Amino acid sequence: MAISLAKGQRIDLTKTNPGLTKVIVGLGWDINRYSGGGEYDLDTCAFLLHGDGKAKGVEDFVFYNNLSVYDGAVAHTGDNRTGAGDGDDEQLVVDFAKVPAHITRIGITVTIHDAAAKGQNFGQVSSSFVRVVNEATNNELLRFDLGEEFSTETAIVFCEFYRHDKDWKFQAIGNGFTGGLAALCHNYGLDAG
């Protein structure tokens, strides 16, 4: 039975699941029926953060044009350009055993591609969630449903994994940004130019 988290909650992942080394991070969403504005293309990204809370370069950034970093420590399974259908719309695979020691956090985010040009935002997106699945057993460990609190935001930090001593923990975040991917890159220390 998966644990359902609320915004701001934290949970031990590897300590409470002995032997857990690899997880699938599934993210999903629906577009409101009266959304207008053409097709929606939401994109999942991961920012691998150093001790200062910042990514240092493209080697710390997983997205649809850079699908894997650090020999598969974090890998994107592919871009879903429509979000149609049930279940996960996009997935990342995190192999905690391969995450370098200098990486202390992994931020998991979703942006709307070309949101400004299309007049789109997360106020038009519903049923957003992130779930973490044990890759070895396919058991869902936890789930965080984001709710409907967004309006003009075009990027959201869904959650973060963070290292505590030798263990990894999960934090449900759900913070929105205007300015899309560029705003997230700036937040995490990367130059989006």
Rank of each mutant, 00 (worst) to 15 (best):
M1S: 14
I3N: 11
I3D: 14
S4Y: 15
S4Q: 14
L5F: 06
L5G: 08
D12P: 13
T14D: 02
T14H: 09
K15M: 11
K15D: 12
N17Y: 12
P18Y: 09
G19D: 09
L20S: 05
T21Q: 15
I24L: 12
L27A: 15
D30A: 08
Y34N: 14
E39G: 12
Y40W: 08
D41S: 05
L42E: 08
L42C: 05
L42S: 09
C45F: 14
F47H: 07
H50A: 10
K54S: 04
K56C: 07
K56R: 13
G57E: 07
V58G: 14
D60K: 06
D60I: 04
F63M: 05
F63Q: 05
Y64F: 12
N65M: 11
S68E: 07
V69N: 01
Y70P: 09
D71M: 03
D71H: 00
G72P: 10
A73W: 02
A73H: 02
V74D: 01
A75M: 12
A75C: 10
A75L: 11
G78V: 05
D79E: 01
D79M: 06
N80V: 07
R81N: 11
G83M: 10
A84D: 12
G87D: 03
D89P: 02
D89M: 03
D89I: 08
V93Y: 02
V93A: 09
V94K: 07
D95G: 09
F96D: 06
F96S: 07
A97Q: 11
V99F: 07
P100T: 07
P100S: 07
A101P: 06
T104C: 00
G107A: 15
G107V: 02
G107M: 09
I108C: 04
I108N: 00
T109P: 01
T109Q: 05
T111F: 05
H113P: 05
H113L: 11
D114H: 07
D114T: 12
D114C: 08
K118L: 07
K118N: 10
N121D: 15
V125Q: 10
S127I: 04
S128N: 13
R131F: 10
V132S: 00
N134C: 04
E135V: 08
E135G: 11
E135W: 12
T137Q: 04
N138M: 14
N139W: 11
E140T: 13
E140P: 11
L141W: 05
L142Q: 06
F144L: 07
D145E: 13
D145N: 14
L146G: 01
L146D: 03
L146I: 04
L146T: 00
E149T: 12
E149Q: 14
E153F: 10
T154F: 10
A155H: 06
I156Y: 02
V157R: 04
C159I: 02
F161N: 03
Y162E: 09
H164P: 00
H164A: 12
D167C: 03
F170S: 10
Q171G: 07
Q171A: 13
G174S: 04
G174K: 10
N175E: 15
G176N: 01
T178S: 10
G179E: 04
A182L: 10
A182C: 11
A183C: 00
L184H: 09
C185N: 04
C185D: 11
H186W: 04
H186E: 14
Y188C: 00
Y188N: 02
L190E: 05
L190F: 06
D191F: 09
G193D: 14
G193T: 13
G193A: 15
